[in-house]
Design a protein around this nucleic acid. Structure first.
Lengths: 226, 226
DNA sequence: TCTGGTAATCGTCAATCGACGATTCAAGTC
DNA sequence: GACTTGAATCGTCGATTGACGATTACCAGA
């Protein structure tokens, strides 16, 4: 993952309109002072300040590389704390919780547990669930990646997909509709509103669409008991 | 994904010891001539050649950005063919097949279907499976990413993990051992050899370790019937 | 109030970049 | 053999970077 992070940092800085600000952002992420960074790089602290202030509009890639590596090295010397964040955190960015049940769970029980309200009364809820995935839909959408992960790993015929941060509930259903592998159940956690279209799509797909008003920590806790 | 690719390209170029070669690599990926690229950038072709030849040891990030954007723009104008490669291909790189069963499958049936030989006779195989994932272990290892995806999405207590391209079978078991979430069964498809350590680890974890001699297409076909 | 840690600003200068254009090669292909 | 097309090499030159050090400014504590 080290390489990944290095590349991301370098890429971000290189593409930034204000590389200085991006450098600063990362330096702050790593909780390193300009001085410490300067020491690690064996340059004067003013150099760092100049970069961050944007005095150089297009620093050379060697400079960028040196800065990135210095930050990562400093972090490693201090235990690699920051890097760890960007390992799991990034990959799992959009996934808040995930679990496979050791024994199948009835949808009706699942509903009771999360205090869910069925928005699609026509759809049968007599099936079983093998597991669930709780997804931060904002993050899933902004980092398209995550959506792709989900497409491949997280969506399966026998699990509940729980979306948090839902506005109208259209995008998740559209994504589901576009994909061959369907979840057995879709849950919106405290949606602002649930669009008609979302309900209609769920009915077409024959997937029960559930709304719950539990907040995330409570929801997670309840789910853990299953 | 566009942003992702941009960042990756910029990052790679920025971190490269020979940025010129990396620029060339990408230009060739995009199947663009130096001249076309130069035209897109509105500079003389010799400029590109100079960069690729390494005449500038540390090009400024603005230059890098311009080159990256030019390549992507050219690709987009031509239909975005190259970019598409870097979308799904990359994410799914290591996953050859994946499926959740609609109904549980007994391990013994699973074994019969794939003509599997149990290398761990002590371990019980009376459990059920919810699904399986077929993984190209070479790709999974070289692109560390994929291994991380798996950690989070693909590994679950009730599924079979099928590894292809196995040399000694140590790495997959070690990775499994290191991770809290365990598969219910591990299958090696035509391993060159199966190391003692791998078997021992499987026993410790109480995960049946299976060997199959089916080749990949046949294996997939059989699995599809489940 | 003084001090130490952190950061900003700026003048300066050698080194390097960014770009051009002229020239030379290497392969096709007409 | 003449003619494109793609690429390499290099001298040149103005513009910018990379780095320093001096100076200033802003806190938070002792």
């Amino acid at each position: 993952m080290r390489e990944q992070l290095r590349e991301k940092m370098a890429g971000e800085i290189a593409l930034s309109d204000e590389p200085g600000k991006t450098i600063r952002k990362w330096r702050e992420q790593f909780k390193v002072s300009q001085q410490d960074l300067a020491r690690q790089l064996d340059v004067s602290p003013s150099v760092i300040s100049d970069y961050e202030a944007g005095r150089r509009k297009s620093p050379g890639i060697v400079t960028v590389k040196r800065i990135v590596d210095a930050l990562i090295s400093l972090d490693e010397m201090a235990g690699g704390h920051v890097m760890k964040q960007y390992t799991l955190a990034n990959v799992a960015e959009a996934v808040i919780a995930i679990k496979e049940f050791s024994e199948d769970v009835l949808m009706t029980n699942f509903l009771k547990t999360i205090e869910g309200e069925n928005l699609t009364p026509q759809v049968q809820i007599d099936r079983h669930l093998h597991g669930y995935t709780v997804i931060d839909s904002i993050k899933a959408i902004t980092s398209l990646d995550s959506f792709d992960y989900l497409k491949i790993y997280g969506w399966s015929s026998q699990r509940a997909l729980i979306f948090t941060g839902v506005k109208f509930g259209r995008s998740p259903m559209i994504a589901i509709r576009a994909h061959p592998l369907k979840p057995a159940m879709v849950v919106y956690q405290r949606p602002e509103k649930v669009d008609e279209l979302a309900v209609k799509l769920a009915e077409i797909e024959n997937i029960p669409l559930i709304r719950t008003s539990l907040d995330i920590p409570v929801l997670i806790e309840r789910l853990n008991k299953l």
